[in-house]
Amino acid sequence: MTEEQLDKLRLDGTKVRVVRDALELNDVVGFVVAWDDENVLIRRPNRRVVKLKRSYAIVPASEPRPDVLTEN
């Protein structure tokens, strides 16, 4: 995900889903807070902040969940 896309998600306040593996249970849902070259910070609904790798799939939560097994 590019810097511009992350900035748009942050400014719009769009809820995102970070897909880490094939299990939907392991997804992180929240709002983009900040990022650098390698990581992104997501604020979860419980107000805790999670630091995740930018290599994970980041999609708006309103869109269907991507199937990470078939895309890789």
Results as ranks from 00 to 15, higher is better:
residue 7 D to P: 12
residue 60 P to Q: 03
residue 44 R to E: 11
residue 59 V to P: 00
residue 15 K to M: 10
residue 3 E to N: 15
residue 51 K to R: 07
residue 34 A to G: 02
residue 27 D to Q: 05
residue 9 L to G: 09
residue 27 D to T: 14
residue 46 N to I: 05
residue 28 V to Y: 02
residue 40 V to T: 06
residue 21 D to F: 08
residue 58 I to Y: 00
residue 33 V to T: 12
residue 15 K to I: 08
residue 48 R to G: 01
residue 19 V to T: 09
residue 65 R to W: 03
residue 34 A to K: 02
residue 47 R to A: 12
residue 19 V to S: 10
residue 15 K to D: 09
residue 70 T to D: 02
residue 26 N to A: 10
residue 32 V to C: 12
residue 9 L to A: 05
residue 35 W to R: 02
residue 57 A to L: 10
residue 36 D to A: 11
residue 66 P to F: 01
residue 15 K to E: 13
residue 29 V to M: 12
residue 62 S to T: 03
residue 9 L to V: 12
residue 26 N to H: 11
residue 29 V to A: 06
residue 15 K to P: 13
residue 53 K to H: 08
residue 34 A to S: 12
residue 16 V to E: 05
residue 11 L to I: 14
residue 22 A to N: 14
residue 38 E to V: 09
residue 5 Q to E: 12
residue 4 E to I: 13
residue 70 T to P: 07
residue 34 A to F: 04
residue 64 P to H: 05
residue 40 V to N: 04
residue 49 V to M: 01
residue 60 P to E: 01
residue 39 N to D: 13
residue 23 L to A: 13
residue 50 V to P: 06
residue 43 R to G: 00
residue 62 S to N: 02
residue 16 V to A: 04
residue 17 R to L: 07
residue 49 V to E: 09
residue 62 S to K: 06
residue 69 L to D: 12
residue 57 A to I: 15
residue 42 I to P: 05
residue 27 D to Y: 04
residue 5 Q to L: 09
residue 15 K to W: 04
residue 30 G to Y: 00
residue 20 R to F: 02
residue 2 T to V: 07
residue 41 L to T: 07
residue 37 D to S: 15
residue 15 K to T: 12
residue 24 E to K: 11
residue 64 P to W: 02
residue 61 A to I: 07
residue 43 R to S: 04
residue 43 R to W: 00
residue 48 R to H: 05
residue 29 V to T: 09
residue 56 Y to R: 03
residue 47 R to V: 10
residue 18 V to H: 00
